[in-house]
């Protein structure tokens, strides 16, 4: 059987997982849409079924791939394909965030000044529609939509979170080196530490949100500032959550003795992903919190 033949590119047998994945996504999104349109109960039910399907699918699909990789039927070329896949996926994620950052920059450099009366357009816009509004950031607009609010200071929780994520990037790298050096203890230790840091980050983030909502009156409705703030930090938080889950899976696999110093694509992929959320956070910290 030529499966172990290094110069055969492994083409998997037909697989049931993709179609299950699609059905999962379909149910998930249909459920979400139905729910948003106000039919709560059916919406939630369909959405949950979809979510469970997706989770089950992931166990099945990835389990399948893991078994194949254990069997050693992936030659180096297949491994490269996986790497490229993950790399370009992360690139697409970067552009997803770029859309929101772009929006933020456009609002801050053009729209808010216009509303405040800067430039020819501003003179008219401000003079005829928004008299008396003066540009500033953060702002919730001429109608101060959402009521007066206080923006979160970058030097509290956000700063701590920055340090947490930065150090978690370091710990995951240490873990990676440990894996290459075949040092299991060290690997499991530092990977675990990374997970803990990620978890603390999420906890603090949640706390910050709670603070903003309850004490600072800084909510999704807080004009353009609240909107951009929550969509950026929110989607980042979502990615940290996913990253943490993936890290946990990797940790369990390490404990189970998966991965060899040479062959540990999944681990690397997850660490790339983790570095990516880290970089996104740095941009957030700079453009959303500080500036």
């Amino acid at each position: 059987m030529s499966q172990l033949d290094a110069n055969v590119y492994y083409v998997p047998h037909s697989s049931r997982w993709p179609i299950i994945a699609v059905i999962g996504m379909f149910l998930f999104m249909t459920g979400a849409a139905v729910w948003l349109n106000g039919y709560d109960v059916p919406g939630k039910i369909v959405l949950t079924i979809g979510a469970l399907t997706i989770i089950g699918m992931m166990f099945g699909w990835f389990g399948n791939v893991i078994r194949e990789s254990m069997k050693g039927i992936f030659n180096g070329q297949v491994d490269t394909s996986f790497r490229m896949g993950m790399m370009w996926f992360i690139v697409s994620e970067v552009f997803f965030f770029a859309a929101f950052f772009g929006g933020l920059f456009y609002i801050r450099t053009f729209v808010v000044p216009w509303l405040g009366g800067a430039g020819d357009k501003g003179i008219l816009t401000n003079g005829f529609i928004w008299q008396g509004f003066s540009a500033a950031w953060p702002t919730n607009g001429p109608d101060s939509v959402g009521g007066s609010f206080i923006a979160t200071s970058p030097w509290g929780i956000p700063l701590i979170n920055t340090l947490l994520l930065l150090s978690s990037s370091i710990t995951v790298t240490i873990a990676h080196h440990a894996l290459r050096a075949g040092n299991r203890k060290r690997l499991i230790g530092f990977l675990g530490l990374t997970i803990v840091l990620g978890a603390i980050f999420l906890g603090l983030q949640a706390h910050e949100y709670w603070e903003s909502y309850v004490h600072l009156n800084m909510t999704l409705h807080t004009g353009i500032y609240g909107a951009t703030f929550y969509i950026l930090t929110g989607f980042h938080g979502l990615h940290v959550t996913l990253g943490t889950i993936m890290l946990i899976v990797m940790w369990l696999r390490c404990v189970r003795g998966h991965f060899t110093p040479q062959n540990h694509f999944a681990f690397e992929a997850v660490s790339w992903y983790w570095h990516f959320v880290d970089v996104i956070w740095l941009c957030l910290f700079l453009f959303v919190y500080i500036l």
Binding site: N140, G223, A227
Partner: peptide
């Protein structure tokens, strides 16, 4: 659905922001 105001000038947003993106 979630009460944000990206495209509402009264809140500091701008419908044209959508067009750029």
């Amino acid at each position: 659905f979630f009460g944000t105001n990206f495209f509402n000038a009264a809140a500091g947003g701008d419908p044209v922001m959508y067009q750029h993106v």
